[in-house]
Amino acid sequence: QVLVIRIKIPNSGAVDWTVHSGPQLLFRDVLDVIGQVLPEATTTAFEYEDEDGDRITVRSDEEMKAMLSYYYSTVMEQQVNGQLIEPLQIFPRAC
């Protein structure tokens, strides 16, 4: 299952990153890619938005798994409803 992660860049749009092994993705892998997209920032975590629009911070593989399972459940709903699949949007955080 292909996963598209949209890395939101403060004040300048976003970069889409296509991942072919989504469920095996590790927290460190995401930080590495964010580091390539935002080389001047030191990113130690990132956030995503849940169904209520609240930002949830991801700082570990466990939290990463929770984010992915949340995302895959929303994708299934979108597929069932015949909607366009939205990329998983993440917001890098420099701490």
Rank of each mutant, 00 (worst) to 15 (best):
S12C: 08
V37Q: 06
N11P: 10
D54G: 13
D29M: 00
S69P: 02
C95S: 14
P23R: 09
K65A: 07
Y48S: 02
E40H: 15
I5R: 00
A41N: 13
P92H: 04
N11V: 03
V58Y: 00
R28D: 12
Q83M: 09
M76Y: 12
V4S: 15
G35F: 06
D61Y: 04
M76D: 10
T57A: 14
V19S: 06
A94E: 13
N81I: 07
L3W: 08
M64A: 05
I56F: 06
I90M: 03
D61I: 03
P87K: 12
M64K: 04
S69Y: 07
S73W: 08
L84D: 15
V30C: 14
V80E: 14
T43L: 09
V37R: 03
Q24W: 04
T57C: 14
L25Y: 00
P23M: 12
V19W: 07
I90W: 00
Q83L: 10
D32R: 07
T57S: 09
P23Y: 10
W17I: 09
E63G: 10
R6H: 00
A45R: 05
G53P: 01
Q1I: 13
V80Q: 14
Y72L: 06
G82S: 09
S73I: 05
T18S: 07
V19F: 15
P87N: 03
L88A: 02
L25N: 01
I56Y: 06
F46Y: 04
E77A: 09
Q24R: 09
F46S: 01
I9W: 04
Y71L: 01
R6F: 01
Q24P: 06
I56A: 04
S73D: 11
Q36A: 07
E40T: 15
I7G: 03
D52L: 12
D54V: 13
V58T: 03
V80R: 13
E86S: 08
K65P: 10
T74V: 08
Q78S: 12
M76P: 10
R28Q: 11
D29H: 08
V33R: 15
E40M: 12
K65T: 10
P87I: 04
Y71F: 03
L88H: 00
L88N: 02
Q1Y: 09
L88V: 03
I9S: 11
E77I: 10
S12Q: 15
A45L: 03
K65D: 12
R59N: 10
V19E: 01
Q1C: 10
G13C: 07
T18R: 07
E77P: 11
P87G: 02
Q83R: 11
Q78N: 13
E40D: 09
K8A: 08
E63F: 01
D50M: 14
Q79E: 13
V2S: 09
V75T: 14
T57P: 10
T57M: 14
P23I: 07
D54M: 14
V80C: 10
K8Q: 12
V15S: 03
Y48A: 00
Y72H: 12
G13A: 15
D32K: 11
M64R: 00
S60H: 03
V75Y: 09
R59A: 11
D61R: 00
P23E: 10
G53W: 00
E63C: 05
P23L: 07
V58K: 01
A14D: 15
V19P: 12
Q78D: 11
G35T: 13
L31H: 02
V33A: 12
R6N: 01
D50W: 05
V75L: 09
H20L: 06
N11S: 11
R59W: 13
T74P: 03
E86V: 12
N11E: 11
P92W: 02
D54E: 14
N11I: 07
P39H: 07
S69L: 08
T18K: 12
T57H: 05
V58F: 00
S12H: 14
E62F: 08
P87Y: 05
Q24S: 09
I90T: 04
V75S: 10
M76H: 13
I85H: 10
T43G: 06
I7A: 01
Y48T: 00
E51C: 13
E47S: 03
Q1D: 10
V30S: 04
L3I: 15
M76V: 09
L84R: 14
P39W: 01
V30A: 05
R6V: 00
Q79M: 08
L3F: 15
D61S: 03
L38W: 15
Q1W: 07
T18L: 04
E62W: 08
G22Q: 11
D61A: 01
D50H: 15
T43E: 12
V30P: 00
A45E: 14
D16H: 00
Q36I: 07
P10Y: 03
E62S: 11
A41H: 15
S73M: 08
I90R: 01
P92N: 00
L38T: 08
D54T: 14
Q83T: 11
N81L: 11
V4A: 03
V75H: 11
L68Q: 02
E49W: 03
Q24F: 02
A45K: 02
G35V: 05
T42H: 13
E63P: 02
T43P: 09
S21R: 11
D50N: 14
K8W: 07
L38V: 09
G53D: 01
T18I: 07
E77G: 12
M76T: 10
Q79L: 07
E62G: 10
I34Y: 04
R93W: 09
L26F: 11
D16K: 00
V58S: 03
L84S: 13
E49F: 11
E49Q: 10
L31F: 02
S21I: 05
V4M: 15
M64D: 03
P23N: 15
G35C: 05
M67D: 02
K65L: 06
E86G: 09
S60F: 00
S60E: 01
Q79F: 06
T42R: 14
L84M: 14
E86F: 04
Y48Q: 04
I56N: 04
V2D: 15
I34M: 10
Q89I: 10
S21T: 10
E40W: 08
A14K: 06
V80G: 11
F46P: 05
I34E: 05
T18G: 04
V30D: 02
G82C: 07
E49C: 07
V30R: 02
I9T: 14
D32W: 05
I5D: 03
V37G: 01
N81W: 04
H20S: 13
D29S: 03
N11T: 09
E86M: 11
S21Y: 05
L26W: 05
V37F: 13
D50A: 14
F27C: 00
T74K: 10
T18W: 03
F46L: 02
P87L: 04
M76G: 12
G35W: 09
S21G: 11
P87Q: 05
A66W: 04
R28A: 14
M64S: 01
I5P: 00
T44E: 12
P87M: 05
M67W: 03
L31I: 13
Y71I: 00
V33S: 03
S21P: 15
G35M: 09
A14I: 09
V37Y: 15
V19R: 04
M64E: 00
S21H: 14
N11W: 06
R28M: 07
K65R: 11
P39Y: 02
V19C: 10
E51Y: 10
T42A: 09
F91D: 01
A66V: 13
P39F: 06
L31E: 04
V33H: 15
I56L: 08
M67F: 03
S60V: 00
N11K: 07
Y71Q: 03
T43Q: 06
Y72K: 12
Q83K: 10
E86W: 01
V58W: 00
S73E: 10
R6E: 01
G22N: 04
A45S: 13
D52F: 10
L26C: 12
E86K: 09
S21D: 14
D52K: 13
A14W: 11
V37P: 00
I90P: 02
R59M: 10
L38R: 04
Y48H: 01
Q83H: 10
E51V: 12
E86D: 09
V58D: 03
V37M: 10
I56C: 07
S73C: 09
I9H: 12
Q78G: 09
M67E: 00
V80W: 06
T43I: 09
